[in-house]
């Protein structure tokens, strides 16, 4: 028990240092916060101009604004740095050190990403949400259960985003380059995740593809649950989909990991 407390204390200390370091660059913090907010405003005014007082497929302007605000909050907590970190360390040869540390490589990357996510959540998402509440106004969650399910699904989406990036990174063990695949998957993700537009407003053919792919679990599913667009009766199915994808990704990662570690070639030293 004391071991766990000790470990937690170490991690907390690390995380706090990370947060402090982020806040040192105060100008950069304010600039990125204002840009995030301006971007949000861009989408808010776009939907105000498009929908006005009317609605589209039952979607009112307030609902669309709620959707884009929640999407920009989620954007800050998705984890996507693993792929490029792996590429970087592979090319420099520093990956050797990652392998000899008394903590698995995967956990190191995850903790790193989680620290980043926590800092963006506290320093970007929370102020952004507050500003949105004051200046723009968003709809409250459908019910308390919807809110809890939203938080749960958003965390699930976060872990899925980590595994996606991590698997791309593992492919780099073969190709020595993760950047291409990262861009490619990023592009597909922009399309299928519902980052800019809820799936119910997609053209029919694209909606079918988006419903099958896992990317919707990062943006669309959590937000649609928050808004009550996914009713309680469909909630179990949504959660099941999340778990199935999670296990699939973990399975792929497990297989790839076994193969790649045998493949590792460290260049230079």
């Amino acid at each position: 028990m004391s071991g766990i407390v000790e470990t937690l204390r170490t991690y907390t200390a690390f995380t706090l240092c990370f947060l402090k370091a982020k806040f040192i660059y105060r100008a950069s913090f304010w600039i990125s916060l204002s840009i995030n907010f301006l971007f949000l405003l861009m989408q808010v005014y776009l939907w105000k101009a498009l929908l006005g007082t009317g609605s589209l497929a039952d979607t009112t302007v307030n609902e669309m604004i709620t959707y884009v605000v929640m999407a920009s909050v989620i954007r800050n907590i998705l984890l996507s740095r693993a792929a490029l970190t792996i590429e970087d360390r592979l090319l420099s040869g520093d990956i050797v050190f990652d392998f000899i540390r008394p903590l698995s490589f995967r956990v190191q990357l995850l903790l790193n990403d989680l620290g980043q996510a926590l800092s963006s959540f506290l320093l970007q998402s929370v102020p952004l949400m507050a500003a949105a509440l004051v200046f723009v106004g968003i709809n409250p969650p459908e019910s308390l259960i919807h809110l809890i399910a939203f938080i749960f699904l958003a965390i699930g989406g976060m872990i899925i985003s980590f595994y996606t990036s991590y698997i791309i990174g593992l492919v780099a063990f073969y190709t020595m380059k993760a950047e291409y695949l990262e861009w490619l998957i990023g592009t597909i993700n922009t399309f299928l995740s519902g980052r800019y537009l809820p799936l119910w407003l997609y053209p029919a053919w694209l909606r079918i593809i988006a419903e099958i792919a896992p990317f919707k679990l990062m943006y669309y599913t959590p937000i649609a649950v928050y808004m009550g667009r996914i009713p309680l009766s469909e909630l179990p199915a949504a959660l099941l989909t999340m778990f199935v994808w999670l296990f699939l990704l973990i399975g792929i990662e497990f297989l790839l990991w076994k193969k790649t570690t045998n493949k590792l070639v460290v260049q230079g030293g």
């Binding site: 589209l56 861009w183 399309f191 800019y196 053209p203």
Partner: peptide
């Protein structure tokens, strides 16, 4: 990949505006 990625940005604008 750059072609795909930048092309998709046009598609998203089109997707958002299509119904309006």
């Amino acid at each position: 990949i750059k072609l795909l990625s930048y092309g998709s940005e046009y598609l998203i604008v089109w997707m958002i505006l299509d119904r309006f």
